[in-house]
Design a binder for these strands. Structure first.
Length: 453
RNA sequence: GUGGUUGUAGCUCAGUUGGUUAGAGCGCCUGAUUGUGGUUCAGGAGGUCGUCGGUUCGAGACCGAUCUUCCACCCCA
């Protein structure tokens, strides 16, 4: 067989030791906050029945689903009629499974399937990869991780507030606070669509106004008029959008044109609860042009933007009142958020925010000159490890220079040198690799020094 | 899915209208230093020019296809 060039599919990546430990650093922070807020972990399969996934993300989403071709003779049920019917008709004959597209829909499936084992309100978190057959770009991959936290079986706006505070805590712990949590409400979007003269055309309306910050008022106005909207009303609306004001006054302004509305009431409750819970709204921005997850969100919607990095949203979420309905379980309201691990990684990399210790493989490396000192080192290694110090001994007998070089290269902060003199006296050359300082100490002193560091 | 863009050493990039043997910096290896890394100096290794095909006496350069990268649209973490 001829040799083949090793490669991986477009939009996928290998993660080396350094990337992996950095990804774990982020994941650990997210995970510990999920637990702090009372979420329990679940996992679902990478592959789902295609029927579970299709029709949940809109036409666009269906196109981006990775389908898995049936095993065995996958053409056995295909007729020439199917072939002529085109790819859509063929699909159901040759594929019955697909890779999950997000974690929310599999979770809804999970809730319905395990309804008898679940006590509501149910809070779950889930950290797993998802797949989309999208065309890759920066911060946009075909395989990426989502870190989801959802609460189902409760209508309270307090859950939305909880998720907001969770987001704030996660980014505080990651030492990246240049974020804006944008918030809006589907009910307001729907009423705004009617207001400008596009009743029932909420989705095209949202798609247009979502582009405001990208293409500007004029272009969006053009697009809306194209849909049949009233230009005077659009102008009126954009005036409110343009106001840089407190959330309370923004709500008042929007109420002045929409009248009373469920969305406005809920957002008022949201800000009230946030205040009562001691949360900050400093990085929470009410943005009536925010439009997310149009196919299934029904209430409050969120999106987190990195203020000083050009990348898509790094976290998003919202409330869905009837996601379990399609699986035959009515009246279960859920609200959740999803952190984009890969994008957060890209942001922290760009802002240089990973602690150096993340890449540190061990605290100390034992170096030696010959077989005898190597063997002596094995005992020390065991002692260090039982004292809880991560430690390694250089495995081969080679020049000491090489061993020092190795410790330096992979970022080990301390080295312990063993030679004939050290074996005799029981005092070892203990070197701080960063400062270059070296002192002669016995093993207990060394352990103590590292532990106090 | 539509339109564009990128690919030369481990990394970042030069490479003239198509013309001998494809370069630099950094990194890597060896030595100066047989018990000390990160500095310095000397030497060395490393490339089927993304891949396949075409034009040509001759292709890293031109043409086509394909893969990959990034960008815009669409949508989204």
């Amino acid at each position: 067989m001829s040799t083949q060039k090793p490669s991986i599919p477009k939009g996928t990546r290998d993660f080396g030791p350094e990337e992996s430990s950095r990804r774990n650093y982020i994941m650990d922070i997210i995970k510990s906050n999920f637990k702090l807020y009372g979420f329990s972990q679940i996992e679902t399969p990478a592959i789902e029945n295609l029927s579970t996934l299709t029709g949940k993300y809109g036409d666009e989403g269906d196109k981006l689903l990775f389908k898995i071709i049936n095993s065995g003779d996958y053409l056995k049920n295909v007729t020439t009629d199917d072939l002529e019917g085109g790819s859509q008709q063929m699909l159901s004959k040759i594929s019955e499974k697909g890779l999950r597209y997000d974690l929310t829909v599999p979770f809804a499936r999970f809730v319905v399937q395990h309804r008898n084992d679940i006590t509501f309100p149910f809070k779950r978190f889930q950290i797993q990869p998802v797949w989309r057959a999208d065309r890759p770009q920066k911060g946009r991959y075909r395989e990426f991780y989502q870190c989801d936290a959802d609460i189902v079986g409760t209508d309270s706006l307090w859950n939305e507030v909880n998720l907001t505070m969770l987001i704030q805590d996660v980014f505080r712990d990651l030492k990246y606070e240049q974020i804006t949590i944008k918030i809006n409400h589907r009910d307001i979007l729907s009423k705004l669509a009617s207001f400008v003269g596009l009743p029932g055309q909420e989705i095209p309306f949202c798609v247009a106004i979502d582009k405001l910050d990208k293409i500007g008022d004029e272009k969006v106005t053009e697009e809306l008029i194209g849909l049949g909207a009233d230009s005077a009303k659009i102008a009126e609306l954009f005036e409110i959008f343009g106001k840089e004001d407190s959330s309370a006054s923004k709500l008042e302004a929007i109420a002045s044109i929409l009248g009373s509305s469920r969305g406005i009431d809920e957002l008022k409750d949201y800000f009230k609860f946030l205040k009562l819970a001691g949360g900050s709204d400093a990085n929470v921005e009410l943005d009536f042009s925010l439009a997310r997850g149009l196919t299934y969100y029904t209430g409050v919607i969120f999106e987190v933007k990195a203020n000083d990095v050009k990348i898509g949203s790094i976290c998003g979420g919202g409330r869905y009142d009837n996601l379990t309905g399609v699986f035959g379980m009515e009246n279960v309201s859920g609200v959740g958020i999803s952190f984009g691990l890969d994008r957060i990684y890209d942001v922290l990399t760009e802002k240089n925010l990973f602690p150096t210790s993340v890449n540190q493989p061990v605290d100390a490396l034992i170096l030696h000159f010959d077989q005898e000192s190597f063997e002596h080192g094995l005992g020390l290694l065991a002692k260090m490890r039982s004292a809880g110090i991560t430690c390694e001994i250089y495995p081969d007998v080679i020049k000491i220079k090489k061993q020092f070089n190795y410790a330096d290269k992979i970022g080990i902060p301390y080295t312990i040198v063993i030679g004939s003199e050290e074996i005799k006296t029981g005092k070892y050359a203990f070197k701080n690799m960063k400062s270059g300082e070296q002192q002669t100490l016995d093993i207990n002193e060394i352990i103590q020094l590292i532990q106090n560091d």
